[in-house]
């Protein structure tokens, strides 16, 4: 019975309780940082702030996610985009949890392990698989096989080159 009304003599009593408290499960807090990688005089890599870069500079993106909730998080996928104006530097995505990173060449729609392939239709009208090049990569993804318990964190990184 919907929206029926009662006589005016009746009293409307409304009791409102606080909503169920949030934060009872896992919560991931993510931080991303960017560092420019330069070579020192003694030929060692040095990370410096990447507020400003030049074309062809190498920038390393580091992702750190911490479980700030009260329960374990599972099925975690960490995703790092390759921003416009940059190209992924091959083999720079760190591994995690014993698993290699996955890569997308379609804007994060699908992910593959290396070698990354895509299909084209050749001049004969036949589908042909081709191997993608690093400049085609749009996203890097890490799939964690294990849970991330409350209070734990995970760190991954990858590098790009400024076009």
């Amino acid at each position: 019975m919907k929206r029926s009304l009662l006589a005016a003599v009746l009293v409307l009593v409304l009791t409102v309780c606080a909503s169920a408290a949030y934060g009872q499960g896992p919560e991931l807090f993510g931080e991303m940082s960017a560092r420019k990688i330069v070579m020192s005089e003694d030929n060692r890599e040095v990370a410096v702030p990447a507020d400003q870069v030049f074309p062809l500079d190498c920038v390393e993106y580091t992702l750190r996610y911490e479980n700030t909730g009260s329960a374990s998080a599972t099925g975690i996928n960490l995703i790092g985009p390759i921003p416009d104006g940059t190209v992924y530097l091959d083999k720079t995505a760190t591994g995690i949890d014993g698993a290699d990173p996955l890569f997308s060449i379609d804007g994060g729609k699908t992910y593959q392990e290396v070698p990354i392939t895509y299909t084209v239709v050749n001049e004969n009208g036949e589908e042909e698989a081709r191997e993608a090049t690093p400049d085609m990569i749009t996203h890097v993804q890490w799939h964690m096989e294990s849970d991330l318990d409350a209070g734990q964190d995970v760190v991954v990184s990858y590098r790009v080159q400024v076009k």
Binding site: A50, V59, T74, L78, T86
Partner: peptide, 29 residues
């Protein structure tokens, strides 16, 4: 150049969540 990471995860009863990071920006000189 702007970049922002994200993460998807589940709780132990299968609810799915998304967490995004801060955005980092880099200016090309």
């Amino acid at each position: 150049i702007r970049n922002q990471a994200s993460a998807t995860f589940e709780d132990l009863i299968g609810n799915t969540y998304t967490a995004t990071s801060n955005e980092v920006t880099t200016i090309v000189l």
